[in-house]
Nucleic acid binder design. Structure first.
Lengths: 186, 186
DNA sequence: ACCTGAACACCGTTCAAGT
DNA sequence: ACCTGAACACCGTTCAAGT
């Protein structure tokens, strides 16, 4: 019973348990819903217990965002590896798809609250993810760089505008068709 | 003295005074820094006084975001009116410039915290601003619509990626050159 | 009509103390 | 080494009461 996985919360796996609970709440209620006291309650520990594993609420949020960038990075790498990168379309599609599939996580990854207190772990995780993009789109001339940034900006903008429902879907068209239609533009 | 502007806080202009103080704090510390008790202190009223003018903190944030969309809208209209809209470049530039000039406000306008509690005033203000864009870029065919959304997404993505310093500036190049270079892409 | 004073529930965080 | 209990400062919000 001392090694029972379901009872392991009190025995060394509190950090993981907090992060798992936080991910669920993040997608259900957004960043504001992720409260240390709530997480402690959900995992049946005292309000002070999380401080053994995270310096602050911001540190826990950073850990979540890092997890997000790692998953994001992995997804982009899988797509980049699975086919010839003639066009950026499959990569762009995966980018937008990740945002729509993990709205809470994606918003946290790009949250300005977090970026404020200059957390190096977050920046490293973000840079690693974007390195995949840069590698695929490649090119060192200024023109190639501008073209790559242009593509990146379009994909990122599409993701956040869709996420916040600022783009109205035409009648009868679903999101996938819209993404394909936009990414097919020159 | 009863009509002295500098002493009018206590006499009917508390709403405006709170919003002005909030705008300053918003740009200085971000959304999290905008706290009702702080605003009340800054304006020398009791913690309960703001509730005569705003139902909640969220209502005050909404009012700020509405102001933001109105200023944004006005800026886009000015640019659209001041020249022939052959290309979307001047409009795109104004879009990005507004974000960089008003980072706190722009982030709040597109904050997901606010969109959560479905505030109709915010949506109306946002739609009014985007109507200017739609009008300029026009077109009712699906191809034209996709082209317009593609342009919008690129400009919006460029704004938020620059705001969050995710786009690294090449050595010796300033932001203006980068914006021009990206918007010059087909 | 608009503001104050005092209170309530809640949160992040700290710290001494327990096992 | 890791967690508990109790406390502190702070916040959003409410409500009776003041002018």
């Amino acid at each position: 019973m001392s090694t029972s996985p379901s009872l392991s919360y009190h025995h060394g796996d509190l950090r993981r348990a907090l992060l798992e609970a936080a991910l669920v709440i993040l997608e259900r209620e957004g960043e504001a819903g992720v409260q240390l006291r709530d997480l402690a309650r959900a995992v049946h520990v005292s309000p002070a217990a999380p401080y053994r594993h995270f310096d602050s609420r911001a540190a826990l949020l950073e850990a979540l965002a890092v997890i997000g960038f790692q998953r994001f990075s992995r997804k982009l790498e899988d797509v980049a590896a699975s086919g010839p990168a003639e066009t950026g379309m499959p990569l762009g599609h995966a980018y937008v798809r990740f945002a729509l599939d993990n709205p809470g996580l994606f918003r946290l990854m790009f949250s300005s609250q977090l970026r404020k207190d200059n957390r190096p772990g977050l920046r490293m995780a973000a840079d690693a993810a974007f390195a995949t993009l840069r590698h695929v789109m490649g090119g060192n001339t200024q023109g190639q760089r501008n073209a790559a940034i242009s593509q990146w900006a379009r994909v990122h903008g599409l993701a956040v505008l869709l996420l916040d429902r600022h783009i109205a879907l035409p009648d009868g068209q679903d999101v996938e068709q819209l993404i394909a239609g936009v990414l097919a533009q020159p």
